[in-house]
Design a protein around this nucleic acid. Structure first.
Lengths: 355, 355
DNA sequence: GAGGCGGATCGAATCGATTTGAGGAACGAG
DNA sequence: CTCGTTCCTCAAATCGATTCGATCCGCCTC
């Protein structure tokens, strides 16, 4: 017996019903090649009659050698990824820019499943023409290795530029430096920072950045941006994810002590928002008692009426840039690395250092 | 020339290199059928040698008649969908429960694109074995029609039970009734409600529910739940999406007037959180001056230290239920409609009516 | 009327695998 | 020594389309 005992009509059935050859019937649907108007209509009528809904994508894909699918590898938990507006908006932009190219987006969790395999089976065997690695992997990433082995062209986001993969990122290091300078100009010297995860371990607490293993480029670059401004943070607090509640926890820890910093720079707006909430809970005024800054440039309704001082990254452009990189890869060329600019946006959450 | 002038090795190449037939080589990879250990190793070695990374999924899919893909139709804008934690968590649960079935999740925006076609081209022609319609369509939905035409089994979320499609939802009507009774018991009589969108128009403002066109089942049911408790809301405010900022806008409008309601029931937690923020901005104490309730049972860090009174829906179970429905459809059976239970959770945002 | 030409149609090969039924080797039993 | 069994292996059909090159037909030109 065949694979599925389904009796859906095929192109051959339609061709037979219309009294033409399969090749002609194909032409009627694809429009690639000369075909008489009358013939075409006859074929379409026959299709209608048999309730044939168009060429089976599987057959088409095999013949074409293309699946029409871009696999998007969302690091770690999907839920967490979605709760970060940054991921969500990039994903949104990506879907938006891929749609017109007739490409679908396949979600790939990419978690190391507990059953032994270090790589998601979808990465190993799903049909896709291009892969996008959100939250850039390093050269050692087994996910990247699997994609390479399969020969699937890949775009890496926010990763290190590497051989053989396209990369799209933002100038977050420079942006962070600019932000830090702004804080310095306000007179602050006791500056703490709340960071994204350092690595897959996802710690939660104060760390010594000199000895703590730091695998994630994005965290490293944003940290380096602060150092570039000549600042040595009085405290570095690592969070397990860019979420408001983790920012709040960090804020309570940092601002609860008597020798608290006068300024806190967070590596994301969500974390910064959490710090703001913590400050309010502790009865501290922002920015009179403590200055707080973030990164990303999101619109966060719940720190209203305050407006976060932050570094704005062009999320929309990012989606577009990824789309372009994908298109280029699909054309068989190698896109050059893209680094999008960022801009400092001074809000109401930073002010002069308290006397 | 072939479809793509790629020279990746095929199973035939591997078979030749290993000195066996293609069928034997296939067996070596799939393990479906008897094969001598030695032969198997020889084939795998040959594959390694040629850097053959396993059977091409396209060929396998065509033969099997299965794409191994579930298309998830996300209504309207993807970005909006992601910003709603409810969608995100359901999607997460879905991916989680589909992974073990060896199914990938294909994101389908499903927006009516501006270029004339009422249905996303991906719905028309992407390869998928099952489709999931988030935010249930009605019988008239062209998306549903397209899926029917293609003969793709479909699961509809939060929709009307319909012929030929599986449905998964929650008892939101009953839950809303229970919530309303709780508010009634606290003595409130001037009760307003903030709703999800009524239809694709996505209005923003007060509406007369008796005359305003209401196409979306979820909004209808949650509204009906209030009426079931015998309450006639003093005001019905429609929002364009379940987002905090829209809740805030609604809250400012409802609570800003002198004859303001003493209780506001929102159709989602995000909306409720926005109303809480609005109340605080207006200098109203919650719950002393106004009681506020939501729906969904999310953990919302930013209404802290308050805890929303809400109706908890089992988001995790929902993902699981969808996964099961998909599996059932894939097996060729028709799953029965699932309605998951909800539970009232009384928090700190509702209290006795002010004297 | 022969030759040439362009457009429509068709046959056959091809994409890369899976699967079935047949064939063959090795081996033990009679 | 012959005749089953058992266990592997293989050839060939099949999944459903696309596409190349050939053919065919009608019509125009000389």
């Amino acid at each position: 017996m065949g694979p599925l005992s389904s009796n859906r009509p095929t192109l051959a059935d339609v061709a037979a019903a219309a009294g033409v050859s399969v090749s002609t019937a194909s032409l009627a649907f694809s429009g690639a090649g000369p075909i008489a108007q009358a013939t075409r209509e006859r074929v379409l009528a026959a299709a209608q009659e048999l309730s044939y809904s168009g060429p089976n994508p599987l057959g088409r894909q095999l013949r074409r050698g293309r699946a029409g699918i871009v696999g998007v590898v969302i690091g770690d938990a999907l839920r967490r990824a979605f709760r970060e507006p940054v991921s969500a908006q990039v994903l949104d932009g990506l879907v938006g820019s891929l749609g017109p190219l007739d490409l679908g987006v396949l979600l790939i969790p990419g978690t190391s499943d507990p059953s032994g395999n270090p790589v998601d089976p979808l990465i190993e065997s799903a049909a896709m023409d291009v892969a996008v690695l959100m939250w850039g992997g390093t050269d050692a990433d087994p996910k990247l290795a699997a994609l390479r082995r399969r020969g699937i062209p890949t775009v890496v986001l926010e990763g290190l530029p590497m051989d053989g993969v396209a990369s799209v990122g933002i100038a977050d290091r420079r942006g962070m430096t600019e932000l830090t300078r702004h804080v310095l100009e306000l007179g602050h010297t006791r500056i703490a920072t709340v960071t994204l995860p350092f690595n897959a371990e996802r710690g939660d607490g104060l760390v010594d950045p000199d000895t703590h293993p730091l695998d994630w480029e994005i965290t490293r670059r944003r940290l380096a941006g602060i150092l570039d401004a000549g600042v040595r943070p009085v405290a570095v607090y690592e969070t397990p994810a860019s979420l408001v509640e983790h920012g709040r926890t960090a804020g309570l820890a940092l601002l609860g002590s008597p020798d608290r910093p006068t300024a806190v720079i967070a590596q994301s707006d969500l974390l910064a928002a959490g710090v703001v909430l913590a400050a309010r809970e502790l009865g501290l005024r922002v920015p009179q008692d403590v200055s707080i800054a973030g990164f990303d440039g999101l619109e966060l309704p719940w720190v209203a009426p305050d407006v976060l001082t932050t570094v704005v990254q062009p999320l929309e452009d990012k989606g577009v840039a990824i789309g372009q990189a994908v298109a280029t890869l699909l054309a068989g060329e190698v896109p050059h690395a893209v680094e999008l600019p960022v801009a400092l946006r001074v809000g109401t959450t930073t002010g002069p250092v308290p006397a």
